[in-house]
C-alpha cells in the first residue's frame, strides 16, 4: 500500500487504519529499535511504546496534518525519543547493553550460499551490539538511513539536524562499524 493511501485510511477510520500502520511498519521499526537497544527484549518494548505514543498522538491530529504526515520518518522520530527517554530515566547506559547479543532475532535466509548466510547471521547478531555501542548521534543517523531507509533529508527532519550533519554522522558511523567489524572478523 502506498504511504498516502495509509494516511487517507487513517483520516477515514483511525482505529482500522492504525492497525494497518502497525502491520506495515512493525518489522522496520523493530529493526530500528533493535539497532538502538542492542537486544530484542528492549527492542520490543521500545517498538511497542512507539506505536502506543503514535496512536495517542494521531487521535489529536487535525485532518490537514494527517495528509502531510510522512509516517516512516515520523515513527522513527518517536522511536528515537522513546530510546532517549529510557536512557535518561531508568535504563543503564547503552554501552552496558552493547555486548548483549541479539539472540532470538529471526533473520530470513534470502541469499544462496551457506557461507554467506552464516557470515550474515553472525554479522547481524554482532552488528546489533556494535551499532548500539556507537555514539548516539552516529547510531541514530546510521540506523535511520541504512536500516529505516530514510533519505538524508528525512533523517535530518526526524532528528532535527542539518542534512550536512546527518551525512557526516552516517559516514563516520559506517566507518567506525567497518573498523570494528574488521577486527571482529579477524578474531573469529
Amino acid at each position: 500500500m502506498a504511504p498516502e493511501e495509509l494516511t487517507q485510511w487513517l483520516a477515514r477510520d483511525l482505529d482500522a487504519g492504525f492497525e494497518e500502520v502497525v502491520r506495515t511498519h512493525q518489522h522496520r521499526l523493530f529493526a530500528l529499535a533493535l539497532g538502538m537497544c542492542g537486544n530484542p527484549h528492549d527492542a520490543e518494548e521500545v517498538a511497542q511504546d512507539t506505536f502506543v505514543r503514535a496512536y495517542r498522538a494521531l487521535k489529536r491530529f487535525p485532518p490537514e496534518r494527517l495528509e502531510e504526515l510522512r509516517l516512516a520518518a515520523w515513527l522513527s522520530r518517536i522511536a528515537v525519543n522513546v530510546v532517549r527517554n529510557r536512557v535518561r530515566s531508568r535504563r543503564p547506559a547503552l554501552a552496558l547493553l552493547a555486548g548483549a547479543e541479539a539472540e532470538g532475532v529471526e533473520v530470513p535466509e534470502r541469499r544462496a550460499g551457506p557461507e554467506r548466510t552464516v557470515l550474515a547471521r553472525a554479522g547481524v547478531r554482532r552488528l546489533a551490539g556494535l551499532v548500539a555501542a556507537l555514539p548516539r548521534a552516529q547510531r541514530e543517523a546510521v540506523l535511520l538511513h541504512s536500516v529505516q531507509q530514510l533519505t538524508y533529508a528525512e533523517v535530518a527532519g526526524a532528528l532535527n539536524l542539518s542534512e550536512a550533519t546527518v551525512r557526516s554522522n552516517v559516514h563516520r558511523g559506517l566507518q567506525a562499524l567497518r573498523a570494528r567489524a574488521g577486527w571482529l572478523s579477524e578474531v573469529s
Binding site: 512493525q26 517498538a47 546510521v142 541504512s146 559506517l174
Partner: peptide, 13 residues
Amino acid sequence: VEEALHELSAARA
C-alpha cells in the same frame, strides 16, 4: 558492514 546492516533491516518483529 553493509551486508549486516541490510540483514538488520530485514529483522522481523
